[in-house]
Simulated scan of single mutants.
Amino acid sequence: MLFGEEVGEGRVAAPAPGARTPLTSHKPGALTVAQAGVEGYTATLAWGAGIVVVGAVLSALLIPNRALASSEGEPVITH
């Protein structure tokens, strides 16, 4: 079982431990389980995309984008 599917099934299976609701009082149907899997993968994909965007922004801000100044007397090596 993959992480996204676990997220979706967790949202459907147990809103609160021991709670008796229409969702948890009987076994969910195939459509409900399939929808939970899709929603779990979607949520996982959204979180992953957000983490990648945050990493890209932090990289753009923290990594210098210009060459370092050469010291006195050192030859400048370029390609």
Rank of each mutant, 00 (worst) to 15 (best):
G8V: 01
R66I: 08
G8N: 04
V7N: 00
L61R: 08
V52Y: 07
A67Y: 04
V76S: 10
A34C: 10
G37I: 10
V52P: 01
T21D: 08
S71Q: 07
G18E: 08
L23K: 06
I51N: 09
P75R: 03
A60Q: 04
A30F: 05
P22V: 07
P17S: 07
V33F: 05
Q35W: 15
L31H: 02
P22Y: 06
S70R: 10
K27D: 09
A43T: 09
R66C: 01
T44D: 07
G10A: 08
A13Y: 05
I77N: 02
E9I: 15
A56F: 10
P64W: 05
R20W: 10
V52I: 12
E39R: 10
G29T: 11
H26I: 12
E74G: 01
M1A: 01
L23G: 14
G40I: 01
T44A: 10
V54P: 00
A16H: 08
L31N: 15
T42S: 05
S70M: 07
L31I: 11
G4E: 02
P28Q: 10
G10R: 07
P17Y: 07
T78Y: 04
L45Q: 06
G55P: 00
N65Q: 09
I77A: 12
P15A: 11
A46E: 08
L31T: 08
R11V: 01
V12T: 02
E5M: 12
E6N: 14
A69D: 09
R11F: 10
A67E: 10
I51S: 15
I77V: 14
A36Y: 06
H26V: 13
Y41N: 10
L2P: 02
A13I: 01
A60S: 12
I77W: 09
A19P: 00
E5H: 03
L31M: 15
G40Q: 08
A34E: 14
T78C: 05
G48I: 08
T32H: 12
